[in-house]
């Protein structure tokens, strides 16, 4: 059975007022894929708090993002995040930020082009308004100017 994380969060943070999760009951926005993934420029964004080399770390309620070169190696990457166990991602970032795997899938032709750079932020942002109104529009603008065809999002 899938774990129910909303009640678990309430329990784990029981010292605080219950968090009001976003509940969207509308039909979500929709843009059809214009071409198969094998012909598409696919971008990656991960919320696991991945940092590249000497990039400044994130902080609580941080609605900024970092650009991660797609050829970055394990040694180039660090993590700043308070909301998940980072041990495995520190050993192999591909658990939550699959740069190496997407490069391989690009080489195999499964993906037309793996967009460079990839995007990273720290997803533990309590303010949904900040995500919707500050972070998300900036990401959308970046993706549009990079002529990205499709976006893969990976939480952590």
């Amino acid at each position: 059975m899938p774990v129910e994380y909303i009640p678990r969060t309430r329990e784990l943070y029981r010292a605080y007022a219950p968090y009001r999760w976003v509940v969207n009951t509308d039909t979500p926005p929709w843009t059809p894929l214009r071409k198969p993934i094998a012909k598409s420029k696919l971008a990656l964004i991960g919320s696991g708090g991945i940092l590249y080399r000497d990039q400044p770390r994130f902080h609580r309620e941080d609605a900024t993002y970092r650009l991660i070169p797609k050829n970055a190696t394990q040694a180039d990457l660090d993590i700043w995040h308070f909301g998940y166990k980072t041990d495995d991602a520190r050993r192999d970032h591909n658990c939550v930020f699959p740069l190496a795997r997407l490069r391989e899938l690009e080489a195999e032709g499964v993906i037309g082009e793996f967009a460079d750079p990839a995007y990273s932020f720290m997803g533990g942002i309590y303010s949904a308004r900040k995500v919707r109104e500050e972070l998300a529009p900036r990401i959308a603008d970046e993706l549009k100017s990079a002529h990205v065809d499709a976006l893969l999002l990976v939480p952590a």
Partner: peptide
């Protein structure tokens, strides 16, 4: 929280 943030971004980008 990450899952909520990712979903919100997906909706805006879409």
């Amino acid at each position: 929280m990450c899952h909520q943030s990712v979903g919100l971004i997906a909706r805006v980008v879409e």
